[in-house]
Amino acid sequence: MLLDLLEIFLTAGFWAATIRIACPLILGTIGELICERAGVLNLGIEGIMTAGAMSGWMWVYLGGDLWTGLMFAAIIGATFGLLHSIFTVHLGLSQHVTGIGITMLASALSFFIFRMMLPESTTPPKITAFQPVNIPGLSDMPFLGEAIFSHTPMTYMIFAIVPLVIYVLYKTPVGLALRMAGENPMALEAQGMNVLSIRTGAVMVGSAFMAVGGAYLTMSAFDAFFFGMINGRGWICVALVIFASWRPGKALLGALLFAGLDAMQVRAQQFAGNFIPYQFFLMTPYVLSIAAMVVMARQARYPKALLSPFRKGERT
């Protein structure tokens, strides 16, 4: 049995699945991380991912091109981000309550529009999604070719986004301003900068990332939209941000780790499903990620101004 488990690691299919499962989580986690680094918790993520999945898919279904579909999903995500920041950044309302409200609004609206546009369909209609690209030389390599070099362009784009976000966050003035907005907004104000617009911008960009993460599901991993598609992935991203101690590099690792556990449990069901109930396997990635979080979160350096609204000119 232990050998069976080890054997899983030796199949290229396992590694390919891990990368596939990780992609929406990576974008969602990076998006949430950007919001939280600026001091705003965005619990709208679950709904924003749903809206992204629906809108990107719908764009292509109505005749749009795949890449502009991603742009459209990003714009929809940023719009919900703007809504979230109007309530939390400008009006200073509870970030928890607003976020959950955004999730409910965005999910319900997505399902509603989907039904409105396609009232007749019983089986989810399909689009032509992103297809795996064949990279000459690399894709033909044994094992690695199948595990790493047989993915869609969108997958590679997501892996390229992470170092880009790290660079922007740590090496550019706008990244510094964003991090300061989450640590001590008064410092921004004292240096003549506008806290509200920096936070708003961060929440919009972060939400755009989330929406594209959702769109990965309907435009790259699968080719259809159906209800309950996001299935808690947004909440996993919120947890992964804590797991990552608000660091984008660790967020990538965390998403891959969770995805690996998920890919493994599916395969483990096949050989142990006879004597262990399958629900147990479904549970394992969540249980293990809770355990990992307990270990990691202890040394987490959370953004000091997370959850606290900033109001200019208020007496302290």
């Binding site: 003035p173 300061m180 001590n184 008064m186 410092a187 921004l188 240096q191 900068m193």
Partner: peptide
């Protein structure tokens, strides 16, 4: 009176904050 610094950032980062245009691609 109450310092406007961020503990988790370096001294240099605290000082150069806001001194460069936000559109610049490099600090």
């Amino acid at each position: 009176q109450h310092f406007t610094l961020a503990d988790n950032l370096s001294v240099l980062e605290n000082i150069i904050l806001g001194t460069e245009p936000l559109t610049s691609w490099r600090s």
